[in-house]
Every structure is written in structure tokens, then in C-alpha cells.
Amino acid sequence: MEVILKEDVNKLGHRGDVVKVADGYGRNYLLPGKLAIEATAANKAVIEQMKGSAIRKSAKEKTEAEGLSTQLNEIELVFERKVGEHEHLFGSVTSGDIAHQLEEKGFKIDRRKISLEEPLKTIGEYHVPVKLHREVTSHIKVTVKGDQPEAETVAAE
């Protein structure tokens, strides 16, 4: 199945590209998610007009992403989770958790743009990359702390 991408899709292509994908991937993910449209003759004619506006839109998005990137580089998020032996967390910190806490601070960022290889499962300080635009990547400082109040009170005495 051939589709025309309406948005950038990781490991597939950029907005405006005509790509060949498996039927199920196109029907079940790309089309319902409004990430692509079916590549018919009429849509291919429309896409040529869309490419010109996409270039202008991409330039505008890049400048907005650069501004947002400078704001995000200064943000530090702190998560408290229950901790087991060897500072291993019972509940991990996922990209959804990071996106939720960013939204509480006033930044609307899709969790899919947060490039977390795997959920954070140990205590520590991490620098998590956020891909705001294909050419702009920001880094957020994420600190994961243990939730052990009795250990802290013993250490404080």
C-alpha cells in the first residue's frame, strides 16, 4: 500500500513523502492516526501543493522548536518512587510520566517525542532527549528519588 505522510514518522519518512508500507500498518496505524493519507492520483496532485506550504510550515515549526528547546533545557523534573534493594524502583518512570509532569508545568509535548530508550528503573539523574523537530533536540534533566522517609529521618539525626 502506498501512502503520503502528513507528519514525520520515525524510521519511515518525513511529511510529504510517498512511502510503501504494509497494508495492515497503513490501515491500522497510519490512516486512523491521521499520520498519512492514501496515495491516489488526486491525493498526489494535492500533495504537490502541500509540499510548498509544508516547507514554510517546517521553517516556522523549527524556530518555535528552538525557542521551546531553550526553555526545556532549563527544566528539571523530580520523580519519587518506591525503592527496593539495590536502589531498584518498584514503579518505573516512563515517557508518559515525563510528558504528564511537563504538561503540569505548562509544556504540551507528545510522549512519543520523548526519546526514552527504556523506562527509568533506578535512582539517579538522567538527561532525557526530547525531539521537538527533526533538526531540534532538547535535553531535560530528570531526577529519580527513592521514597523512604524512615531512612531519611535516621540519616538526619
Rank of each mutant, 00 (worst) to 15 (best):
K11L: 06
G13M: 05
H14E: 12
H14R: 15
G16H: 07
G16E: 03
V19P: 03
K20V: 12
V21R: 07
A22I: 02
D23Q: 12
Y25S: 08
G26N: 03
R27K: 11
N28I: 08
L30C: 00
P32R: 02
P32W: 00
K34H: 00
I37M: 04
A39T: 02
T40L: 06
A41G: 13
A42Y: 03
N43G: 01
K44F: 04
I47N: 15
Q49N: 13
Q49I: 00
K51V: 04
K51T: 00
G52P: 13
S53E: 13
A59M: 07
T63D: 02
A65R: 03
L68E: 04
E74P: 15
I75N: 04
I75L: 07
F79L: 09
E80A: 01
E80C: 10
E80T: 12
R81C: 07
R81T: 08
V83D: 10
E85V: 14
H86G: 15
H86N: 15
E87D: 15
E87L: 09
H88V: 02
H88L: 06
S92Q: 01
S92K: 09
V93L: 03
V93P: 01
T94S: 14
S95F: 09
S95I: 07
S95Y: 00
G96F: 13
D97A: 04
I98H: 02
H100I: 11
H100L: 11
H100C: 00
E103V: 07
E104A: 12
I109S: 09
I109H: 04
I109W: 10
D110F: 06
K113D: 07
K113T: 08
K113M: 01
